[in-house]
Structures are given as C-alpha cells and as structure tokens.
Design a protein around this nucleic acid. Structure first.
Lengths: 346, 346
DNA sequence: AGGTAGCACTCGCCCACACCGAGTGCCAAT
DNA sequence: ATTGGCACTCGGTGTGGGCGAGTGCTACCT
C-alpha cells in the first residue's frame, strides 16, 4: 500500500505548486521528483488525495492544487523545518541590536519579518497587562484635566487624559504622584485589579508625613480606575504592520486585496486573531485559509509566534497568501521571535 | 475666438473621464454637456488642447484623456469648490469631538479623510518643534540609563532612553526634574536650541535651596542635548496612514500598487513630501502626478492642507490616483483640517 | 474667421472558430 | 499494486472578420 508515497506525492505537489503557481500534473511530478513510479500510478494516488480533500483540480483537464487541508497536512507532517542561513541570522541579530528604544525595536522587527518572508508582517507591542510598572507620572493639563502617563519595565509609555470632577491643585498632584509610585511601582499591571482597593487605602492614608487633603481618596480611586480601564480595553494594545506592498506583488488573490488591506488596518481584529493563536506561547502557530474565522482573511495564511519572557509577552506574525513557502516563513518568524525575546530580556 | 469654450471643453473632459474612466470623444461631449456647438467644432478644440499638452489620445481612434497638465489647469482654474453636505460636516465635527486624547483625534481624523475621499489618508502629528513644553519627566531605568519623557502642550508624548557616562542617584534625578521643569516649561521646543546654553547654567545653578552635585552640569547638558537631538531628527515626527484598501479598489494604476504602498510605509518620505507642500500653510495644496518628484508616486496625486494654529502646526493629506474627484477631495481635506484646528485649539 | 457637415480612414475591441496539448479516468495487461 | 495505452475533456492561444467609436481633413456656410 502506498500510504507513504501518497504523502510524498502531496508534498511534491505543494512544493511544485508553491514554486511555479501552476497546477501540477502527474507527468511533471514524475519528472521533477524521483519517485520511482509512473505517471499512471501517481494519478491513482492523486485521485485518492482528491477524495480525501487534500487537493483539487481547478478544472477537468488541469493539474492539481492543494486545498487548505492539503497545506495543513503539509505543514503538520511533511515540511522539514529549514534553518535560516548564517547570513540571515546575523542580519537579524545585528539589526535588532542596533535599536535605540522599544519603538525602534518593534519597528525594526516588523520590517525584518516583512523582508525575510516577503509577506505582511505584524508585531504586537509587548503586552501592557503583564509587564511591571516602572513609573506613573501625573501632569495637570488645563483646569480639571489630568494627564496620566504610565511607563512600564519594557520602556513602553502609555498616556491617558482624565476629566476630573473638581479642581486639584498642583501640590495634591505631586503628593499623589509620590505615593502612587511608592505603592504601585513593580506591580504587574494585570495584578492591579486585585490589589486596587488595598492600594486606594494605602495611598490615601499616605506614608504619614504630608497632610492629606479632603478629596484625595476620590482622586486616587479615579486615577487607579483610569489606569485599570486603560489596560482593560484591549484596543490600547498596539499592533504595527509592515510590508503591505508584498501583498500587491503576490498576485495570488482571486478577488482584490482590498479586504485584506482593510483587515490589516483594524488593530482590534488583528489583536483578536493573534491572541486566538496563542495556544502555546512559545511555538509557532499557523492558520491556513478558512481556518481564520474572519471572512476577509480566508484567502490568507497567518504564521505567528509568541515572544518575550514572563515579564512581557506578545506575538509577532506574517500574513500572506495560501500559496507560500511555509517552512521558510515559519523559520523566519521563529528566528525573529527568539532574537526579540533575547533583546528584550537583555 | 473660442478660448473660453476650449477651457469649458477641458473641464467637460476631466469631469466625464473622472466619472466614467472612459476616454471621452467629441460626440459624447456634445451629448452630455450643452455646449452649443457640433462635434466637429469640439474636435478642433480638442486638437488645440492636445497641442497645448492638456489632453492626449491613448491611441489613434480613441477619445481623449487629461494629462497631468490638464488636471493641473482644471484644479487651478476650472473647478469650483464644492461645499460638503450638512450631513458630512456634522459627521466630521461630532466624530472628532468624541476623541478622548491626541492619539484618538489623529486616528479619527485619518479614518475620516480616508472615508470621505475614498483615498489613502495621511495625517502628521502636530509638530513637536513648534509646540510648547508642558512637562519633562525623567525616570532612571537600569543602572546608567535615563528615560526622558517629553510632554507637549498638545498632549503629545515623546520618549527617549539615554545612556549615561556615570551613575546618577535618584535624588539627583529628582532635583534635575524639578529645575528643568521650572526653567523650560512653556518654551517652544524650537526655541530650545537658542536658549540651551543659558538653560544649562540656570538649571545647574539651581534655584538656591538644594545642594548641587558635582556632575550636575554635565547631566543637564546631556539631557538637554538629548531633547534637542530627539527633536532634530525629523524621523520623530510621526505620520499615520489609513485607507490603503482604497488604492486597491481604484484599479487606476497601470503597473502595480506596490510601489505606492511601499512609499506610504516610509514615514520619512511622506514627511518630506508633506512638508514640501507647505508653501502656504493654511491653504490646500495639490501635487499632480509627475509634480511629485518621487518616482513611486508619479502616478498619484496628493491633496494636502496644514492644520492647527501657531502653537501646533502640521499637515494632513490624501493620496490617490490621478483620475479623481479633485473638488471633492479638496473640500474634504480642507474641512477636516479646519475642524482639526478647532479641536486642538479648544 | 469661426463653425458645420460630410466623409474616408484607423484601430481597438469583441466574437466565433479551430487547434493544440496537457492532463485525466479507465481498462486491460503484467 | 503497478503500468501502458487510449479516448476524452477543456482551457489557452491564435486567427480572422466585423463593428463602431473616434479622428482629421476638406469643402461649405454665415
């Protein structure tokens, strides 16, 4: 029984189709790959593969093309992970190492992925919720408005403007800043919720020296609420995208690429898709075609990996056509994720 | 002499071609526009217009199509500015008014422009150099690293990490923060360069109370240098883009749209293009086709306007195909610029 | 002089048609 | 289980003719 050979045939079909964009026929297969059998035999195997839903013929007298399911088995069972070349790895590490701050790291990473994979690259900023608080800055802007700036251990800065119920003088703000920082620095933002009430009391009571104003408790609560709320809305989790031009070049999209472009501009959607892929944070996950439950992306595949250590975890990914070099993409995404983890830890 | 009519003909050609994407012929013109003359006469005018380089015929027996120069005269002399509908204006003002912070304003504005013009929208953040300093925050991160956060009057936040020559204790940082803010708040960032030396002395000397550490002068200089440098590199001026999907829909690009997409991802290029268009800050400027000296964009037109008052000036714009509804785009861009100015001032 | 009518001419577009060849499924033979 | 043979399908390509929109030119009109 040719169970094994059948999978060989599938692999050959995927590889050839990815390379040539032409539906691949039985004869071409026997010529380009030395499976030791005749075209007729291949045809039988192909019939079986089609039966199993792994390949289809676009029309009666054409070769076969992999289905989503076909790519899926290819990715799961057939592709051997290809290591990046030494040059590529060097390029990654030096490029990332040159970054001057977090924004720069993310920017470089996203461009790198786009260039390595020839696809659209997506990088999520290190998640706020899980990173530790480094500093909270309060600045009063205007009469009853307070600008809250949150600085995390990873160097990420988030801001938010608050409208207050009543006037607050600068002294009160300064006092609050001191206590807030004393009490909350070092906490994971995701822990904030749990210890919030406790914090309110602790901060309002003060450390003893300065006189406590009347509305301080309210103010503290308001500020902490704001911080929590900022973190709660996922929309604050930023995603950056690069390499959209690669989409236009691929010419693999039946309809237009504009639905895909639209999807890529929707941070919220991207975030949801990425986080849904986070079954195993460390490993590379792949979503192929209709496996993406999101209509505009059913003609794309997403290859994604988590990065970062415990303190700051997020995801990166590559969005590209169904017909793509999966082993190559996976290798590139994984490599960048690893270097990224290393850089952020250092 | 039909000098006037000739321009009427040009206007008619532009309008029809924009509406239909078909090269327009003499007969069609007389039918759709009531110029009171026969097709033969129109043909003579067309010959003259072609002679003048305002229109061309794609091939011998086809209608005419406007050239860059044709669009240019249309924009300069022939298009009457169309006011937006009341509904549109209401949409703009309410949408922008709901924004919660600067990021949100910019985000809403860019989406708005994309939606109104059906083109790619571009919004430059209110320029750092010209906005006043609201607050400088210093946070030491790690041993000899200092995070400098700059907050402007418009609510914009910029950050930068410094590597220091020697250790600095928290007390020194706190002291510096106090003095720096006392001395520099309210200054235009663009003025910083001029008064820098003066500031260094002023801040180092302190206001009298706290004892001054040995390395303080150096530290002050380093920090001010960093601030100045951050501002100097234009790359820190951010540009956001939206509506790239509109490009893919337009189907007006001879080659591929990928060069255009690439260009749109290059912040530096976009910034240069935008600032080059700032002859008259308030008015709407238009660059048509080859007027953009940047090769990837020679098949596009850019409609752009400044916004903001003296304190915070920047530009917005729309990038689209040559064949577009210029009056509509101009109206939309101008309207959004005005509302934006109002919002930021209020 | 400017506008008009008529006319011959050009050419891109569309359609019908035929042909070629890659590829298939099936069957009989090994 | 594999293979060679064979009839059949059908998309892609090339050819040729007809159509029609559009033009430039010339002669004519006001």
């Amino acid at each position: 029984m040719g169970e094994d050979r059948r999978l060989d045939v599938l692999r050959a079909i995927v590889e050839d189709y990815v390379a040539t964009r032409e539906p691949v026929g039985s004869r071409a297969l026997t010529e380009r790959h030395h499976l030791g059998v005749s075209p007729a035999t291949i045809r039988n195997d192909m019939a079986a593969l089609e039966e199993a839903g792994l390949i289809v013929a676009p029309h009666t007298s054409a070769g076969r093309v992999p289905t989503d399911k076909g790519y899926r088995t290819f990715v799961d069972h057939l592709s051997q992970v290809r290591a990046l070349s030494a040059a590529e790895r060097r390029a990654i590490s030096t490029l990332l190492a040159q970054a001057v701050d977090l924004d720069d790291v993310v920017d470089r990473a996203v461009r790198l992925i786009a260039q390595l994979t020839h696809q659209v690259a997506v990088v999520q900023y290190p998640s706020l919720r899980r990173s530790a608080l480094r500093h909270v800055e309060l600045v009063s802007v205007g009469e009853r408005r307070l600008l809250v700036v949150i600085i995390t251990a990873t160097g990420r800065v988030e801001q938010r403007t608050l409208d207050l119920a009543e006037d607050v003088d600068d002294a009160a703000v300064a006092r609050l800043r001191l206590r807030l920082n004393a009490a909350a620095v070092g906490l994971r933002l995701s822990d904030l919720d749990r210890v919030r009430q406790q914090l309110v009391e602790q901060v309002s009571a003060g450390t003893g020296t300065a006189p406590t104003g009347a509305g301080d408790t309210d103010l503290v609560r308001t500020v902490l609420d704001a911080i929590a709320e900022t973190l709660a809305q996922e929309s604050e989790e930023r995603v950056v995208v690069a390499g959209t031009a690669n989409l236009a070049r691929s010419a693999d999209f039946a309809r237009s690429i504009s639905p895909v472009l639209e999807a890529l501009e929707e941070q919220v959607v991207l975030l949801r898709l990425l986080t849904e892929m986070a079954e195993d944070e460390a490993a590379v996950a792949v979503r192929i075609g209709r496996e993406n439950r999101y209509e505009p992306l059913v003609e794309t595949s997403i290859v994604s990996s988590g990065y970062g250590d415990g303190a700051a975890v997020a995801r990166i990914g590559a969005v590209g056509p169904l017909r793509q070099d999966y082993p190559g993409t996976i290798a590139a995404v994984r490599a960048v994720a690893r270097y990224l983890t290393r850089i952020l830890a250092g």
